[in-house]
Design a protein around this nucleic acid. Sequence first.
DNA 1: CGTCAACATAGAGGGATGTCGAAACAAAAG
DNA 2: CTTTTGTTTCGACATCCCTCTATGTTGACG
Lengths: 124, 124
Amino acid sequence: MSKQKLEVIGQDAACCPGLSAAPLDEDQAADLAKVFKALGDPVRLRLMSMIASRGEGGEVCVCELTPAFELSQPTISHHLKLLRQAGLIDCERRGTWVYYWVLPGVLGKLAAFLTTQQPAGATA
Amino acid sequence: MSKQKLEVIGQDAACCPGLSAAPLDEDQAADLAKVFKALGDPVRLRLMSMIASRGEGGEVCVCELTPAFELSQPTISHHLKLLRQAGLIDCERRGTWVYYWVLPGVLGKLAAFLTTQQPAGATA
DNA sequence: CGTCAACATAGAGGGATGTCGAAACAAAAG
DNA sequence: CTTTTGTTTCGACATCCCTCTATGTTGACG
């Protein structure tokens, strides 16, 4: 059920040097931009929030997500697919329903990327 | 020099309840999505990184940013404008040159938004 | 005032993205 | 097997976005 994903955030410890640590090279920027781009849509951000609100190990059925929006079901499915391809969430089918959850540690690693400072004393 | 900005992140303490705290409503999601969308481009992410690497209070001249990309000068200016409208950076003209810096606390608040957990014991 | 350099803005073109309806797929139920 | 329900995929279309060239604005310097 989880086919093509990005493994930008979930590599070792802090993925990249950190946004403020040193200028990103093109490849790092391209990979990270995909994650931020996935969060750069109001619908996807609300979907992420609804799923993440379940806490660690929590799951949400698509049938609970869809009625929260005034959008067609294929559209919601499309946004969930993008979030999954960005490496933010994963899903599993159990019987008739499909459940989504936030990949553990992803949000923390993203936050760490944003806040990691430069090695101190490197104003250039 | 700083006209139209978003004040999503820089409100009080943690702007919104937090991504995992409770499902975002439409307005919150729309505002936050603009910030993530601004970071959802490789060029803008590199620009942010180059500026943020200067540390707290650090500045970068546009004349240093432009030659780092194989893009036209108006394109870089356009991306800087989007980052400024997202409330991530600000700029000031001094003589012939224009200097950009990261608005203080923005990255930390964004990170806090990503990691803030729900009130505990709220699996629904 | 005239000129030059740094940067911003305006407008256009081509590709990416969000949305939909229709159809395909999967699993359960009758 | 047929039907029903939940979900994804497909194809199309409108819109947005990244990039460019051309032009405007601002300040420094003779």
